[in-house]
Design a binder for these strands. Structure first.
Lengths: 232, 232
DNA sequence: CGTTAATTGTCATGGTTATGTCAGATAATG
DNA sequence: CATTATCTGACATAACCATGACAATTAACG
């Protein structure tokens, strides 16, 4: 299938039906998404939902409550896009969903393909916060560019390539954890690629150059383990 | 109303039901849209639909044919956003609508408020530019023409074909984001079309030629990802 | 504190792969 | 049938990025 993001989007799925949950999780994963699945409201951490996912897919009818309530609560603190799944779909239900601020509303039963089309539609129109500003540099992941005010006040603008962008993003997302070389290789290069061990360093070198002497120091190497993005 | 652009958005409505047609026309007008209403397929001018509206709302069940067919035809030459209205809404119907490239699919009966929420949602995410002027060229998307002052002062006028126009428009709308080849293929060629890899490039080549040496440079390729329209 | 081994930093280089470009084939259009 | 639009395949070009050599740094140990 057609899909090529800079880094995989994180999708959260709240669905009590075991069979549908398994299927969706598997298929979304295959489509290149990073999926987390919960079966009930009790399991979820709303703080996490609001802040660490690019898309929430919420079933409305759950054993321990309504997905609408979850969505409403999330929406009060975050504008992460939400897709509701629902067994009924009266005009009232849909309106309620949209008024909560859902991006999409998909009645069951649906074809998987419909869901995927909508997921991509949503993510395409709702890019994640794509900018990082820090000291004298701004990284824009949407345009893959780095702007930096160069010592004597002039602005330089350079382009990140795809791998550099993915490495940087992964480091920032994982921060403050240390990201191992192996994980970088798996996530950025792919699980079946085994380039030499200097390869990762080279990307790091270039990133440090791009970010400049100040922000560049935020990428620190952790000997024997990997690299880490340190919050100032 | 949020959508207070310099000129109001032009909305086309295809709906055979007299009462619903009157209501929608009135209410959309009240919301600040410039509405044109047709009652049957026979009445419409597809060329006009494709290029001069910001949004099409098409009823699927019509006395003289299917709104799906109209949408499909339009979609082959334009990516104007489409909302389908339909009495039935099986999973198959919705999938069909989305595969045609519809932005939204609203089953009857619906609350007016639902429709308005969706209309605004679509227009917010899908701004349409009718003209582009830049350096020595002017692109008019309504007439699909490109005018350029040729080095020694004479004006050349050439025509864009439909695909060229759609690609250009998509790049500009998404700017400064990079638009992936996959998205271009999905949006311009269709979700079930997989032409060869060089196909997209060819359109880009031609666009660069049409736009000339100055404006042509605004289309930059981002290796491994896609293309990007760079501002200034 | 100094020596050594291991890890990481840096850079030039060339092979590899994606893209640019064009001519001709094919399909759509009228 | 003529004309235009669109796709395909071949080749040229350019960007990328993996590699390996070597320098710099760190950790460990005596």
């Amino acid at each position: 299938m057609k899909n090529s993001a800079v880094t995989s989007s994180r999708v959260f799925l709240l669905e009590d039906d075991q069979s549908l949950g398994v299927t969706l999780t598997e298929r979304l994963h295959k489509e290149g998404f990073d999926v987390k699945w919960a079966r009930s409201i009790g399991e979820i951490n709303k703080q996490e939902l609001a802040n660490t996912f690019d898309l929430l897919i919420l079933d409305v009818g759950l054993p321990d409550g309504s997905g609408f309530e979850v969505g409403k609560e999330i929406r009060s603190t975050s504008d992460v896009p939400i897709i509701f799944l629902t067994a009924q779909s009266s005009a009232e239900d849909r309106l309620r969903g949209y008024e909560i601020g859902a991006e999409e509303f998909i009645p069951k039963p649906f074809h998987l393909r419909e869901l995927f089309l909508r997921v991509r539609h949503v993510l395409r129109n709702h890019p994640r916060s794509q900018k990082l500003t820090l000291a004298d540099v701004t990284v824009d992941f949407a345009s893959l560019s780095v702007e930096r005010s160069n010592g004597d006040g002039d602005l330089t603008k350079e382009k990140l390539n795809a791998k550099e962008a993915r490495v940087l993003r992964l480091l920032i997302e994982r921060s403050p954890s240390v990201v191992s070389r192996d994980e970088l290789l798996d996530r950025v290069w792919g699980v079946n690629e085994y380039p030499s061990n200097r390869t990762v360093d080279n990307v790091i070198v270039r990133l440090r150059q791009l970010l400049g002497p100040i922000a560049g120091q935020k990428i620190v190497s952790v000997r024997g383990i990997g690299y880490q993005w340190v919050q100032s």
